[in-house]
Write a protein that binds this DNA or RNA. Structure first.
Lengths: 244, 244, 244, 244
DNA sequence: GTGGTCTAGACCACA
DNA sequence: GTGGTCTAGACCACT
């Protein structure tokens, strides 16, 4: 209940910054995996409705962040790099505190439990199939990672996890809510990425229970399970953060 | 769970559009009342960190939307106009459907119940005083409006109501969550404004109960009351919309 | 047939300059006589659709040119002064050459003979009455000036002469043409005013002949007489200019 | 001979309006042809002694009138569009009546016959060469248009015709007169443009006769031929207008 | 190198 | 002291 500043300064956003954000969002959501090649400069310019110059500026930023590698000539292009924890995130360390973590998970709790409750009411059978497939792949990745630990697998699991949660949100069929879930997960990515190094043992525990509740149309239960899942993740991360 | 567009076109946002948004947000939140004068062009430019030219472009838009009137000379300035329901929103009628309303209220339900739950845990006594004051003023406005109905009073109530809900959200002390509540209330403003003409009889019913729960630190109850309140408003608006 | 500059620089005209021009035009056309008071500042502002400030700026210019005198307080106002030939036109002497005179009279010849030809075809009887009255007053002024020479009378004759010529042009009922006659007479005023000191003996010679031709509907003759009149005036002025 | 309003309201003219007028004048006089590129924004600002911003405002108006098209990037710029008779002049149809046409041609008759008379006396041999060249090109265009009718050619002829008439006026070496000829032709352009679609058969008939008279120094004859030419054009347009 | 936009500052007309 | 307009220069995105 602040008294009255009333108006916040506005900040102009340059086109290439928007492109950086969009590409980062896409990478964060695991739409491209380490080693994948992004569409060509020309295609990106076309898709994003900007000029090639602008794409290049944006790519340069992501290259400086060690998220892409740029090779020229035949067979060149933009290649997705694995998140490298040794680079100090190029510039400013995200520097997450426990307080930030709490705020982010508070928000997740609010919007994701809400979303999953609606999802239970509005999901289609196609949604359920897609989500089940995702879960299956996540199990595979976990099993593989146990046999042969590797950051690439951890990374892949994170991407799948992200897609699972977003998929659940999409079942709510509410554009506003979906956008908010995307936003909070995007905001969480940076902080979590800087802490997350191993596959948390309980990472996939409650996913299938949640999906079952959604399948059964039991919103209350889905919501409660989601709350438990989020809380568990929160505690895990918080303890890692405290010890890092 | 759409398969693959992966990347959305980006859209450059001009500085004056951002200023329009910021001013609209401020007006929507009732930070200025009809008849009030906004800060002068020069002050706005200063506050918003843009040039006067940019402020002017933005003000021109709001003037075209009949939300501000512009007068010059000593004593002139930008004056806030009362929302005029007879202008067909200047250009495109907001054209809200029941479906849109449902989505918006779904979202309110999710974020505002979540926010009030946290608020119950984190509110300070100052917060409680402020909120109680707001409630007092809302009661006055309602009483006055019953004696002497007037659109100005309806409008004033809406502004106070908005401040009450935002105030509750701010008690959560979670910037992300506050931002989301602001966003959803902003999104709701246009649609609701186009339907809302009278003071709904139940407008203030649950507010004091919610505040009491927040004061008592009973998050569960606060959340439930808020859900009831939002649902009630939703039903009222939906019936008005259906009959309009 | 200059080859190609194609575009001329534009020049912004300040509001008070426009007011100066308008007032000058009005004074030049003899709509106010020396000693007359102009409408009050407030009235002028109203008539001219500008603010009082702007009127004041304009009046200040005319005062500096010794065309108006400004007195304040009760009974004050803007008083028209007689053209004072001893002031060197305040700033830059108009500095007319024979060449300029020729160009101006070339133009008068063209537009005024054309205008009078149309006038002969389109004049009404009211027009004729008005013009005859003007001629009568001009004769009176000439007679009076012969008995008792005075600059005031010369000035009055000039104003009447101007109104006679403009009146003829207005009979053409062609707004474009009338505007052009006004423009050329306005342009001529400054140069002529700086040379003209006495009543030329032949000043009124052909006026009644021209009016008679217009009355008779004889455009050809009216035009020829006008040409003769203009030529005569031209020669008189040119000789004065050569000897000054 | 109106009795007394005496003073007309003044109207502030914004710099960008002046630029619009100047550009319109230039386009009307055919100094740029459809498809031509205007000087760049920066050059125009330089030539017209205004800022780029002001040029832009003006260009925006002409773009809205479908007289220019704006493209950006290297090779972009302001391109002159062909007058599109299908756009209803974007906003207000010029809506010319026979009465307006008469007034305009009355004026043409007056000023252009006067101008050509002086031209016969003052033309140089260079003037004659230039005018003869123009006539030659006009003949070519007419011949080509007979073989292969096209609006582009009609438009080109109009531009050449305009330059011929202005060229004649310039021979008078009288700046005032030239300005008036330009003004009346400018005023005529809009009305005529909205009627003129074909090459009038008699479009070029008297041009060479007029030029011959000017070459011979026979002002009387040149003037008479010009009168005949203007009258003929007037009748042609009036009949088209009556039948449209 | 084009147009598109914003900025900072000035001057003006207005009340 | 308000809004209205223009200016000069900068930076950007586009092609």
């Amino acid at each position: 209940m602040t008294p009255s500043p009333h108006l916040e300064p506005v900040r102009q956003i340059a086109a290439h910054e928007l492109v950086v954000d969009e590409l980062r969002r896409s990478l964060d959501q695991g739409q491209f995996r380490p080693g994948d090649r992004l569409p060509s400069e020309r295609e990106l310019a076309d898709i994003l409705h900007v000029s090639r110059t602008t794409v290049r500026s944006a790519v340069a930023v992501l290259e400086a962040e060690h998220r892409l590698s740029v090779r020229r000539g035949r067979g060149g292009g933009f290649t997705v790099l694995a998140p490298a924890h040794d680079h100090p995130a190029s510039e400013q360390q995200a520097e997450v505190g426990l307080r930030d973590l709490r705020d982010l998970f508070d928000l997740r709790l609010v919007v994701e439990t809400g979303a999953v409750q609606l999802a239970a009411a509005r999901r289609t059978t196609d949604d359920l199939t897609d989500l089940a497939n995702l879960l299956g792949r996540m199990q595979q990745v976990i099993r593989e990672e146990r046999r042969r630990p590797s950051t690439a697998l951890v990374y892949e699991f994170q991407a799948l996890d992200n897609r699972f949660h977003l998929g659940l949100a999409r079942c709510s069929r509410n554009a506003h809510l979906i956008a908010q879930v995307e936003a909070v997960r995007g905001a969480m990515w940076g902080p979590v990425g800087s802490v997350f190094r191993d596959l948390e043992p309980n990472a996939n525990d409650l996913h299938s229970d949640i999906l079952a509740a959604v399948r059964g149309g039991d919103g209350e239960n889905a919501s409660a399970l989601m709350a438990e899942h989020i809380d568990s993740t929160h505690r895990t991360l918080a303890s890692w953060l405290a010890n890092s």
